Simulated assay, not measured.
Amino acid sequence: MNKFFRTLFIFLVLLSTRQVTAQPLAPVDKQDDKVPFGLNLGTNNALDILYSIPDFQAYQPIQQSADLIDLMTQADLAQTELGQLLSVISQQNKTTMLLPAAKSYQRALQKVTHKFEGDARLITDLARGSIVANNVDDLMASYKMLAENSEVVQIKNRFANPKASGYRDLNVLLKLPQSQMIVEVQLHLQTIANIKSGQDHKHYEQIQQIEAIASIEHRPLNEFEIQQITRIRQQSHKQYHKAWLVYKRQAITTDYPQAA
């Protein structure tokens, strides 16, 4: 009898071991299928996806060198690399690429001295560019390609959190794969970009002039000047808001393509 139970026990142990080893492995997520940072593709509406991108900083954006002259040399290479990337993106998404001239050494030195207390590692816009889209779908497709082809270091989503003036854009700091330099890319919508460079710039100059007069006279702004500035800012906000409403209505009727 004891021999029977011993044989049965050994049989059950062997059966249990066989069942454990025969279990399939848990599925492993494919890294190649990861969604670019900030893109919540649970919805196919481009406007919802844009709103869902959070303000974000992976780490403090710091360049690899503290020597401004060295950084200026690196920036020339990075600007070329960025230009190639933005050119491909703009061609595929029917957007406009803007690639300004690199910052001059004097302007860069002034910014490092006054804003960053002499720490050249903190300057992130020596190489920079912009993408201007005609609709939210093209803007989101452009951001997706940026995130897929470089490292997202920081995001300021001014579409979800606009400036007090009503201005909106997507400001992104990226680390480029070849130069390993941190660069700045702004993603704009065309009408909003036009307002910023046109009428809003004039409004900015008007406010600066009013404030300069008070500064020269060593006095605070008077009530009339405050009312002037308030009225000017309200005009800017009204223009930006009107332009954004057009893009919102347009985006609501358009679906963003789902990831493959």
Rank of each mutant, 00 (worst) to 15 (best):
N2I: 12
K3F: 15
F5W: 10
F5T: 14
R6P: 05
R6N: 03
T7Q: 13
T7S: 11
F9Y: 14
T17W: 01
T17A: 11
Q19N: 14
Q19W: 14
T21E: 12
A22P: 05
A22F: 02
Q23M: 13
P24G: 10
P27A: 08
V28K: 09
D29E: 09
D33K: 15
K34G: 00
K34D: 03
K34I: 15
N40M: 04
N44L: 11
N45M: 03
N45G: 04
A46W: 11
A46H: 00
L47K: 03
I49N: 02
Q57I: 11
I62F: 14
I62R: 10
Q63C: 08
A66N: 10
D67P: 00
I69T: 15
I69S: 14
M72P: 00
A75F: 02
D76Y: 13
A78E: 12
L82F: 05
Q84D: 06
V88W: 08
S90V: 11
S90Q: 06
Q91F: 09
L99S: 07
Y105C: 02
Q106N: 13
R107I: 10
R107D: 14
R107Q: 11
K111D: 04
T113Q: 13
T113M: 07
K115N: 11
E117C: 05
E117A: 06
D119I: 02
D119T: 03
R121W: 01
L122A: 03
L122Y: 05
T124A: 12
L126M: 07
R128N: 08
R128M: 06
G129H: 07
G129C: 04
S130N: 09
S130R: 04
V132F: 00
V132M: 01
A133V: 02
A133C: 08
N135I: 02
N135P: 12
V136C: 01
V136E: 01
D138T: 06
L139N: 00
M140C: 08
K144T: 12
V152K: 00
Q154V: 01
Q154E: 13
R158C: 01
A160V: 03
N161W: 12
P162A: 06
Y167R: 01
Y167S: 00
R168F: 02
V172R: 08
L173N: 07
K175Q: 10
S179L: 03
I182M: 06
I182H: 10
V183D: 04
E184Q: 05
Q186I: 11
L189E: 05
L189P: 00
Q190V: 01
T191S: 08
T191D: 12
K196T: 09
S197D: 13
S197A: 09
G198S: 08
G198D: 11
D200G: 03
K202W: 13
Q208P: 06
I210G: 12
I213M: 09
A214P: 14
I216C: 05
H218S: 10
N222S: 01
E223T: 15
E223I: 01
F224Y: 04
E225M: 06
Q228D: 10
I232W: 04
H237L: 10
H241T: 15
A243Y: 03
L245K: 13
V246M: 15
R249M: 11
A251Y: 06
Y256K: 03
A260R: 04
